[in-house]
């Protein structure tokens, strides 16, 4: 009496499945930690963009009227469909990096698109949407962190 080769192979296969599950659990935990760190950095970038857009001067009653820096409407709305970004910034993500801080050390980049649209004319209300778009290397996916704020004029 004894175990056949097939029985032994099947038992080893089951064991290998269990072990591979354990190892996969470890690697998946690491990947999720990486993803969380990058998502956190992306969210921080998105908030920075929204905060910058919120600081723009907007006074619909200002004279002389105009748009651009130094005018009553520094960051005018663009209601085009599809949305057109009024500000675009590219920066590296705030993540720990090896070596000296220069552009060659950073592999995690984020692009921040800021959209300003008119939400309401009476009362005046604008929507600021700040999208931080970044690339997650392990899956090749493009991820977007979005912050949306509503703002009223300065008047």
């Amino acid at each position: 009496m004894g175990f056949t080769l097939v029985e032994v192979m099947i038992s080893f296969l089951l064991l290998a499945l269990v072990v591979s599950g354990v190892i996969l659990g470890y690697t998946q935990a690491n990947r999720m930690a990486d993803y969380t760190a990058m998502s956190y950095a992306g969210m921080a970038k998105s908030l920075q963009g929204a905060e910058a857009a919120r600081s723009a001067h907007w006074d619909p009653q200002g004279f002389p009227p105009g748009t651009g820096m130094g005018t009553p409407d520094e960051l005018p709305a663009n209601n085009s469909v599809p949305l057109v970004a009024v500000v675009t910034n590219i920066d590296f993500m705030d993540m720990p990096t090896k070596g000296t801080p220069d552009s060659t050390n950073f592999t995690c980049w984020v692009t921040n698109y800021i959209y300003v649209t008119t939400l309401s004319v009476s009362p005046n209300m604008r929507q600021i949407q700040s999208d931080a778009i970044w690339f997650y290397p392990p899956t090749g996916a493009t991820v977007t962190n979005t912050t949306i704020l509503l703002r009223a004029p300065d008047e």
């Binding site: 920075q48 905060e51 600081s55 090896k98």
Partner: peptide
């Protein structure tokens, strides 16, 4: 240099 990690933390705050 390999022994060290470089960190950057940045924020923007509107005074509005």
């Amino acid at each position: 240099l390999d022994a060290y990690d470089y960190y950057r933390l940045q924020t923007r705050v509107s005074t509005r």
